Measured scan of single mutants.
Amino acid sequence: KAKLLVLLYAFVATDADTICIGYHANNSTDTVDTILEKNVAVTHSVNLLEDSHNGKLCKLKGIAPLQLGKCNITGWLLGNPECDSLLPARSWSYIVETPNSENGACYPGDLIDYEELREQLSSVSSLERFEIFPKESSWPNHTFNGVTVSCSHRGKSSFYRNLLWLTKKGDSYPKLTNSYVNNKGKEVLVLWGVHHPSSSDEQQSLYSNGNAYVSVASSNYNRRFTPEIAARPKVRDQHGRMNYYWTLLEPGDTIIFEATGNLIAPWYAFALSRGFESGIITSNASMHECNTKCQTPQGAINSNLPFQNIHPVTIGECPKYVRSTKLRMVTGLRNIPSIQYRGLFGAIAGFIEGGWTGMIDGWYGYHHQNEQGSGYAADQKSTQNAINGITNKVNSVIEKMNTQFTAVGKEFNNLEKRMENLNKKVDDGFLDIWTYNAELLVLLENERTLDFHDLNVKNLYEKVKSQLKNNAKEIGNGCFEFYHKCDNECMESVRNGTYDYPKYSEESKLNR
């Protein structure tokens, strides 16, 4: 008799109507990190870190770059004969040098303040090359056809396309004075040089004057150069050297050249137009028929994500570079809930034993079982409120962090190594801060989002509990077992918050 009662009780308990509160689960393989956990499985997430590029040089917003090819900045601007293909260059979106560009200054020497000139050019998007001192009329008392084997072109001695090597005419090199007034309405880049012979005999042979000088002056520039005559090792078949100089001439300003020898005179100059998204990159990537809004030396990035880990040097509207390998923000729920887990921000989770793959029309909802059958029903209101809140948060985070910009490298010469090392340390410090901030932001927001979901499920549970009161009992896994019969209409009233407690209280009292 006792065995019969136990079996009867078990049958009745199993047959009781139930309603459970749960949440969506799926077959997603997404994982995120939080402050407290690593690799948390979630139903949905968004990636904030771009880690792919196309490996190509592309047009930037429809404008092609200027590819210097086998030449570098120095060779292009001075007019190395091997860089003749660059003479027609007028406009570009950015400038590309190759790491091993070999054609710079063909006659050995240095372009002074080269690093600063590169910085200036990094904001130039177009130029006009014009004859600042016409070759045939500007130097009537001097020979202007100086050439050298060091600047050979097609097997013949030649010289820079933008400079003139002035030497004596006959047996004399009379003092020369020439000036140019900038009437271009924009900055003009003027380049010139000073020749330093290897011996007094060479000085006399070329310029006749043993104590020659070169003077260059404008409103913002004033220097006097004296040739340094000295024996030097042979470089590119030359014992002599040429140093090259430049200045930016403001609109309306005048530049005056005065010399008694050794002047490498300007022939062509450049009127410059600035462009905020221009820059110089060093890259071996090849040019393709493609378009982008962000270019790196590795390749083009076409992404609206706020961060990238491809390269710190970028041109155009680019994500911020960070050292992170993963920045994924959760938008959905835990896919593998932890039992009795309390989140960092106070939300209680884990009283549900598992997510439901059968509930596909919402994030949170119900599963019921009664004599009429069983089924899932999503709670659309709480789901939609959660979707709206999380979507707004993700968009806000992306908008705040998605300050796209150009980031170019800084140039230092060989004598500025300590400054370069200090600059690298400062840049590394800023990069570490950006990386830390980005990672911390994602970790915190992921923790908040998961706790937010847990709290929403808990609130749904409490909503049902407050309606049923003692007409049902909690069975410990997020479910309630009714003390009365609850048909589909009754189940719907529980879900929509209109459950009639008094209607079922007498039946429940008897069954309790």
Rank of each mutant, 00 (worst) to 15 (best):
G193S: 06
H153C: 11
P108C: 03
A217W: 15
S28C: 12
T226W: 14
Y268E: 01
T29F: 02
L57A: 02
S123V: 09
Q120I: 03
T282M: 10
L206M: 14
K156V: 10
E187P: 15
V214L: 12
G193L: 01
S157G: 00
Y173D: 09
T247D: 09
D171Q: 10
I264W: 01
I256D: 05
L164P: 00
P108Q: 01
L263M: 12
L7S: 14
G193D: 07
Y9T: 09
T282L: 15
W76Q: 03
D84K: 00
R236Q: 09
G109K: 06
L127R: 00
Y221A: 05
S126F: 13
I35E: 03
L206W: 11
G62M: 07
H142I: 07
L189M: 08
N103I: 03
G155C: 07
W92K: 09
E82I: 07
F257S: 00
D201K: 06
D51S: 14
S219V: 07
K1Y: 09
L272S: 00
D84Y: 09
T226P: 00
S215H: 01
S91E: 12
Y114Q: 13
G109D: 05
F225N: 03
T18Y: 11
I264F: 01
K1Q: 12
S138N: 09
K61A: 10
T43Q: 07
T260M: 07
V42E: 11
E97C: 03
W76A: 03
S172D: 14
P233W: 06
Q204G: 01
W267Y: 11
K70P: 15
N39S: 12
I229Y: 13
D171P: 13
G185F: 00
I19L: 13
S208C: 03
S198C: 07
Y213T: 06
T247G: 00
L127E: 01
S198A: 07
L121F: 08
N27D: 14
A271L: 13
D33V: 12
G252P: 00
Y268Q: 08
V32T: 01
Y207V: 02
A230Q: 13
C151E: 03
I256M: 14
E115A: 14
S273F: 10
V32C: 05
A64W: 03
G240R: 05
N80E: 05
D17V: 13
L191M: 14
K168L: 10
E258I: 11
R224T: 02
K184R: 13
P174K: 14
G79I: 01
S122L: 06
S52V: 13
V96R: 00
S138V: 12
G261R: 00
L57M: 11
L48C: 09
P266W: 05
L86K: 02
N243R: 12
N100T: 08
F130D: 09
L189I: 09
T74A: 08
N103S: 11
E202V: 05
A269K: 01
G240E: 12
I256T: 09
R241A: 03
L77K: 03
C20M: 08
E258P: 00
A2S: 13
